[in-house]
Amino acid sequence: MEPYRPPSYPAVLGDLAYAAALALFIYLQKLAFRLRAEEGQAWWASNGRDLVNGLAAVTVSGAVWLQGVAPWLALYFGCTLTLALSVIHTLAQRRSDEPWKPVVVAAALLGAPLVLAPRVVAEVMASLLSAAF
């Protein structure tokens, strides 16, 4: 399977979907931290946090797929990006009252290559995965 196929719709739609997925990710991280605070009081809070993080990973993966990246590679990239942004958000939460700002910067820096050259990014990711496995 090819790692990349140009989408049949204008590329700007994939870019907008990616931006929307990142905005949703930031909102979902706020919700996850709120659930984390309630974990001691509500038995379902940790499961809710898992659900929120899973939804974030699926949303980001879907946006990567809309860029033209193969589904299996989009899932890998989306989950990896979600994990990286979650770690950055957690670290920023400890140091700042507005942890979303570093997450937006990191998302822009990590996502820019995908927006600017999706074919190259997909091919590089596919070759890295082939080399690893």
Rank of each mutant, 00 (worst) to 15 (best):
A108R: 12
L66E: 07
G54E: 09
A42I: 10
N47F: 04
A21C: 08
G111P: 03
P10L: 03
T82W: 03
E38G: 07
L31C: 10
P99Q: 03
W100Y: 10
A23L: 12
L24I: 07
L85P: 04
A117C: 07
G111I: 03
A70C: 07
A117G: 06
F77K: 08
A11R: 14
E123D: 14
M1L: 11
Q67C: 11
D97C: 04
A42M: 05
G62K: 01
W44C: 04
A23H: 11
A42L: 10
L116Q: 13
W65Q: 15
E2M: 15
P102F: 02
F133K: 05
W43Y: 05
A112I: 11
L73R: 02
L81P: 03
M125V: 15
P102H: 03
L28W: 00
T59S: 15
G62I: 01
A17W: 07
A70I: 02
Y4D: 06
Y18E: 08
V115Y: 03
F77N: 06
W44Y: 07
R5W: 06
S86Q: 13
G62A: 07
G111H: 00
V58T: 13
F77Y: 13
L16N: 10
L51H: 10
A70D: 15
Y27S: 13
V105G: 03
A131S: 12
D15N: 08
L91N: 06
A32H: 01
G48I: 05
R36M: 09
V121S: 05
N47Y: 04
G48C: 07
I88T: 09
P118D: 01
W72P: 05
P10F: 02
L28E: 07
P118M: 06
Q93W: 11
N47C: 02
A11M: 10
N47G: 10
A84Q: 08
G40L: 09
D50L: 10
V69L: 03
E38S: 12
A131V: 02
L13P: 03
A23D: 14
G48A: 10
G14E: 00
Y9G: 03
S8R: 15
A117V: 13
G111T: 04
Q93C: 09
F33R: 11
R49N: 04
S96Y: 05
V69E: 02
G48H: 05
T90N: 11
G68I: 02
A106R: 04
P118Q: 00
L55H: 08
E39P: 00
F25D: 01
A37M: 02
F77Q: 11
V115Q: 11
Q41P: 00
W43F: 08
F33V: 07
F25R: 01
V120D: 07
N47E: 07
L22F: 14
P99M: 00
L66V: 13
